[in-house]
Nucleic acid binder design. Structure first.
Lengths: 347, 347
DNA sequence: AGCCTCCCTGCAACCGTTACCGGAACACGC
DNA sequence: GCGTGTTCCGGTAACGGTTGCAGGGAGGCT
């Protein structure tokens, strides 16, 4: 910067004023400075700027699992909104490990990001909660729930609604034994889905539910499916509570040589290419993930602004899309009224 | 920090010495300082440390497309190696837009990351090349190729080998018209695959190739497939050069009601859950993506160390996995010797 | 012509740390 | 008693910028 000032024959402070758009700058000086900047290919050091200004114009996003295609869409939505507001989005992956959640949060805090977006591996981890409690930055959780005392905004989906529709659909097709392969109970979606399924089943006479919670991994999906199939009276329909779980479940079903949509019905949470393209296509509880990311970014922007309002909580809808992976159980009489709408992919 | 010094009755510089493990520190002073630190819950400001030390202990990774599951595995491998060496990995997504590549590189540079990992959208973008030329940080490209003058290390896969094996397999099955839905020619894998396929086809009598390059998007996959199918003599086998392209290709095939593995054969580059789980399973040219990320991180570490050697270039293998999506074309006599190994998923 | 006002400029302090230099205190050998 | 190391600590100057404030020149008004 001093070199620029020397070349342009002005004071260092004038260079700063030109570059940061200060009003008290004459046109000829601006021209001289900009010329020198261009000539020396000078670029200001963001680190030093941030240190001085106490602002980094960046937002940190802690992702539980970067390999989840849904997260990618959330990031896309958030990034678009933040970029439009002049912020950069920085990602860190915690591999579904709560310890890394906390470490990454601390990392971002000491790097002075202006805001945090969180898709946590575990909502109840003490290390995570403490890190959040210490930080001064506004934060927003995506599809998670934190104690209100932390003052964190939240965007969540109404997973209960989608799950109720899905299970009702299965029940009305005639299924009497339904299995749920759920995610970790330290995450809101897994809890809501479990509760919603239990509620529908409790309200349906003669229907029995089997619940296996575990990590959002294909291994858990595979093992849980094997376990469900191993019993004397295996379920005739399975709900996979996430797309990694679906992968494992399909592996186990193929291994057991069960024909989806005939011998066994399956529903997945979160629509991905695999569920749409599978033969038969897999019914799913879907949601607008890009919108989820967008909304999260908007909530965060509102809290990072000059006049930060109170933390907000926004609930976005989920919808159940019936597809040919759901059919009446083997041996059941066809139940025509079960179709609540057009069913994709049936031949 | 001054508060800590005041409380502990020592000089600020002594606090710094205690916290950064400097040897010139007596036991009683260390104790007093650490006590004060704990009492005030003081945490050093990484920003200021970085500014002063000229080192951030972080590595920036510019991703062309975060929604690609392969990238997720590359990140996983790289992150593990870097974390073990004390570095943090920061991600930025460029949505396959070259302009964002360059912007993100500049962002990381001004944030003074100690190293850069790049999975670029376009190798030839002038803005990107210029940004890289200006920066002083060591960099490594993943599965891309840059002018040697930039002094950037590289890890690449031998895409040609996998493609040659795949096309040879198709030819020996009896296919005489083969289509390639390729990625952007501004990326090394797309170029190598295209060249390898052309080479095999040129060496095979009576075999004709059709090549459609475009972005790594499902839209291009779908449109290109439709275009291939529209002709008077459509190809009997299609190679999709990437997993987003595969998604689009499958959509188009389903739309055209073509049965994969009977009416049309298909091969994909880059094995993903969809290709393994699809019915029939889809033959693929696969590679060790976690190892790719790991190797990239190791190359970068070597260049970030105290004694940085010259830029290196490492080539990792690819393998072709035949699966039931590849079969002799309709009407061809079965060619038994075509099977080069066990074929997965054939019923 | 004198005075006020308006702009622009440059000095210096500051953001939170660390590196370097010098000095105090003490031990040791002669 | 004195020179010579050691060990440990304090002060100060950076790192690369931003910004409040005072000062000075030019122009407008009476």
């Amino acid at each position: 910067m001093r070199e620029v000032a020397d070349l342009a024959q002005v004071a260092i402070s004038s260079v700063s004023r030109v570059l940061s758009g200060h009003p008290d700058v004459s046109a000829p000086m601006r021209a001289r400075v900009l010329d020198a900047v261009a000539r020396l290919e000078y670029e200001p050091d963001f680190l030093a700027q941030s240190l001085r200004r106490g602002q980094t114009l960046s937002v940190g996003f802690v992702l539980a699992d970067i390999s989840n295609p849904l997260i990618a869409e959330i990031v896309l939505g958030a990034e678009a909104v933040l970029r439009a507001a002049g912020y950069s989005l920085i990602l860190m992956n915690s591999e579904s490990r709560a310890a890394l959640d906390a470490a990454h949060i601390r990392f971002f805090q000491s790097r002075r990001v202006d805001g945090l977006m969180l898709s946590l591996a575990d909502e109840a981890s003490p290390a995570t909660l403490e890190a959040l409690g210490q930080g001064r930055q506004p934060a927003v959780v995506v599809d998670r729930e934190l104690p209100a005392a932390l003052g964190v905004s939240a965007v969540v989906n109404d997973h209960g609604a989608g799950m109720r529709a899905a299970v009702s659909h299965l029940v009305s097709l005639g299924h009497r034994r339904i299995g749920l392969i759920g995610g970790p109970l330290g995450t809101l979606p897994a809890r809501e889905r479990l509760e919603a399924m239990k509620a529908v089943i409790a309200a349906s006479d003669g229907v029995e539910g089997r619940y296996l919670s575990g990590p959002f991994s294909s291994e858990h999906g595979r093992e849980a499916t094997r376990q469900l199939l191993r019993g004397a009276e295996p379920p005739t329909a399975i709900v996979a509570g996430g797309n990694q779980l679906l992968i494992g479940a399909l592996e186990a079903l193929q291994e057991a040589d069960l024909e989806v949509g005939r011998q066994i019905s399956i529903v997945t949470c979160d629509d991905v290419p695999l569920s749409r393209l599978y033969r038969p296509p897999i019914a799913s509880i879907s949601r607008d993930t890009v919108g989820l990311g967008r909304t999260a970014a908007e909530l965060l922007l509102r809290r990072m602004g000059d006049d930060p309002g109170p933390p907000e909580r926004v609930v976005l809808p989920t919808t159940f899309v019936a597809r040919a992976s759901c059919a009446p159980p083997p041996g059941a009489a066809p139940v025509e009224h079960a179709r609540t709408g057009p069913v994709e992919g049936r031949r």
